[in-house]
Design a binder for these strands. Sequence first.
DNA 1: TTGTTTTATTAAACCAGTTTAATTTTTTTG
DNA 2: CAAAAAAATTAAACTGGTTTAATAAAACAA
Lengths: 190, 190
Amino acid sequence: MQISLVDHFSRYVTISDADIEIINKYIKRNTFNKKEELLRNGQVCKSLYFVEQGCLRMFYINSKSTEQITQFALDGWWMADFFSFMDQLESEYFIQAVEASKVVTIEFQSFEVLLKEVPQLERYFRIIMQKKIAASQLRMKYLYEMSKEEFYYHFVNSFPEFVQRVPQYMIASYLGLTPEYVSELRKKNQ
Amino acid sequence: MQISLVDHFSRYVTISDADIEIINKYIKRNTFNKKEELLRNGQVCKSLYFVEQGCLRMFYINSKSTEQITQFALDGWWMADFFSFMDQLESEYFIQAVEASKVVTIEFQSFEVLLKEVPQLERYFRIIMQKKIAASQLRMKYLYEMSKEEFYYHFVNSFPEFVQRVPQYMIASYLGLTPEYVSELRKKNQ
DNA sequence: TTGTTTTATTAAACCAGTTTAATTTTTTTG
DNA sequence: CAAAAAAATTAAACTGGTTTAATAAAACAA
């Protein structure tokens, strides 16, 4: 369900044709193959990424040397390591395409200039960030409230498209479960 | 360590004396006694709260009928149920003063008008929200990575002021531990 | 300064979810 | 298509943290 960045802007603020020309100066459009890396551990997160189509995941290598997924982004979602991006510090994360993906890239400097030249975008990003906070507050509430079994079924019922598009072990990782436990749950509830 | 709202704005954007006059039209300053409620379960979160001095906590009543704390705010922090605030929906949370607190209140309608009249504040809130997201990404990483014992000691070492100001059972609740387990940890490491 | 309420401690029984290690199934690739 | 790599399953032993229930200590209010 592809979505263009400008359409997404237009859901929240008014964008003129002149604005679109400016925007196009400061963004890049890339396609990434399955498993291609957008960011690697040790690099600075130089860009914000907007998924027009596809799926990205963010993960780090934990103390057991396994990949711990902390975020996904599907069509119409933003992804970045904000901690690294904001202060241009080294990131501890990888960002990788889960499937072939069309991505809009805004680099740090371009982002700053773009916000000056198209000031409505300050409002757009303020609203988007606010929604991200609301979503993460809700997610934390579920984490406090639910057992891991409930958390798993709540997720797959709420986001059935993930089950279609993302391998089970990645969902397990994102939800903080072992893949073995997910197998056990699926067997139990066939 | 009191901090005024306008000083906080000024850390991120330029605020003129004229702006300050406008701001003062749209904000309210309140003091709350210990245990006084700013928001109650079932009400709409009508305002954003900025703590100039003191401490607020946000919690809900969980399925075991006990208070589950999900957030604190100390001097210089914002607090709101963004989910309820943004769409003016009923909240499931309580917000309560942990100690006597000086709070700046911005109501939903005032917030919208204020952002129009002092447009730099779009930028301020965009940056603040971005920082909140970065902080919550970091918190999630710790949640994935650490055992509950590590999580507890990491928190008390990172935020020693909380241990001074907030009862131990509230910290336990916020960290998702039972108070009994915190006692056990403290005994073990005397 | 005493009685009441709130907060913290103790200890034993318990269990939800992990670990380990092996096997099977599915997907990818040359 | 066959071989290799990636993903999913199975089952048993194990453990970090919870539950329960009772007591003790600290803080607060009259």
